[in-house]
Design a protein around this nucleic acid. Structure first.
Lengths: 223, 223
DNA sequence: ACCTGAACACCGTTCAAGT
DNA sequence: ACCTGAACACCGTTCAAGT
């Protein structure tokens, strides 16, 4: 009896948090963040959206879990090269990962992640600053700016379904009146030039140099 | 005849782009960005949501227009103080404005604004870097990082309906294992300490110092 | 040209009821 | 405890039809 249970369709696997996150990553890779909704995810797992809420508090938490999963695939920086080189490579790898799904970077910016792989990244960054001789009390705030920069650089590329926005700025800069906006007119070329990797690399150099040269305020009150 | 047109209700004003943006700003101030939807905005203007699309391409464009409106209320920096002081004050004023509506900062990060007031801000920033002796070819990229930092600092505070996220990171940092995460354990205090204004101020110092000390890559290819 | 109602194609989240 | 269907309370955007 009960021949239905012997159909070709594979047995419906039990729901688990890991299974949910894995399915979410799969949808993300195949269809993008826009399509990754609770309803679509539930459909993929052959259940109702409500069932997901047993394992995941809300969409933000789901995004955080996915991000941490993705962070797990960042290769640790090789031991060769100066600490600055390795620091830049590690942060670039982080940004590159995020650039595959800029919408996730946006989530990461708003809800700071706290998963195992994110903590590992923080750990590595702190160690690199220590190796570079950055004073201990400056390291935590230092990686904070570095990560904020790396994350927001990726987030800027979110939702580029229509590149109208960039065109709008480019047009405004090009059409800038020389008398009302002399600076913009003079710098028009540089405002619109530079490959993303070049700007990213320069930005990291700026930050690292700034961090090594800028002392903390004398008193740092708790939040 | 037609006594309906003489009712106490004020005559429905004609739709204009400016009127739409003004109504949007009003809703933003009174109810927040979450409540500012095309449907709610149309309701406020006593029309249907579809009518708005005659004047505004989509939600992103509406957000950009609102942001530029808000930017108009930033006081120009006073002429007193060093260029660094004035630069920091101007950027802080920008971030403070954005912090009132962090959701807008998120929009600004994704769709770079191009309104008149935003261009004015860019113009002022370029002039300040010029005054500070920053080489011409470095100024455009310099204000780009400064604005990215200022905008993303505000964006980080978006959607804090539930402060669970910060708690999650704080817990993870405090619970960090000393053997697996020695750096995090050692820096736990600094990772969680510091008033936002202090971190913001230090961040700007880092950027300004970095910009004045870091040359551009020799070749900068067009985008 | 401008404006509209209605429709299209969706959302996240909650909750009472089942197993 | 886990799972579900159905409901609640919404979205942005398009479009044919009107004025």
């Amino acid at each position: 009896m009960a021949p239905e249970s012997r159909r070709e369709r594979p047995a419906k696997p039990a729901l688990t948090r890991d299974g949910i996150v894995a399915a979410a990553v799969a949808i993300l890779r195949e269809e993008g963040l826009r399509k990754l909704t609770m309803r679509r995810l539930a459909q993929e797992l052959d259940t109702g959206a409500a069932s997901l809420y047993v394992y995941v508090r809300n969409t933000a938490e789901l995004h955080a879990a996915i991000l941490d999963e993705l962070l797990g695939t960042i290769a640790p920086p090789p031991a060769e090269g100066s600490w600055r080189d390795r620091l830049e490579r590690l942060l670039t790898a982080y940004t590159t990962r995020l650039l595959e799904y800029p919408g996730l970077a946006l989530s990461a910016l708003v809800a700071r992640p706290s998963g195992e792989n994110y903590l590992g990244l923080v750990e590595n960054l702190l160690a690199l600053l220590a190796e570079g001789g950055v004073p201990a009390e400056r390291r935590a705030w230092g990686i904070d700016i570095l990560l904020q920069h790396a994350t927001s650089t990726a987030a800027e590329h979110a939702e580029q379904d229509s590149p109208d926005d960039w065109d709008a700025l480019a047009r405004a800069v090009r059409d800038a009146d020389e008398t009302t906006h002399p600076q913009i007119a003079a710098h028009a070329a540089d405002l619109l030039t530079g490959r993303p990797e070049q700007r990213m690399s320069w930005g990291l150099q700026v930050l690292i140099t700034g961090i090594t040269h800028t002392g903390l305020p004398p008193e740092r009150n708790p939040t």
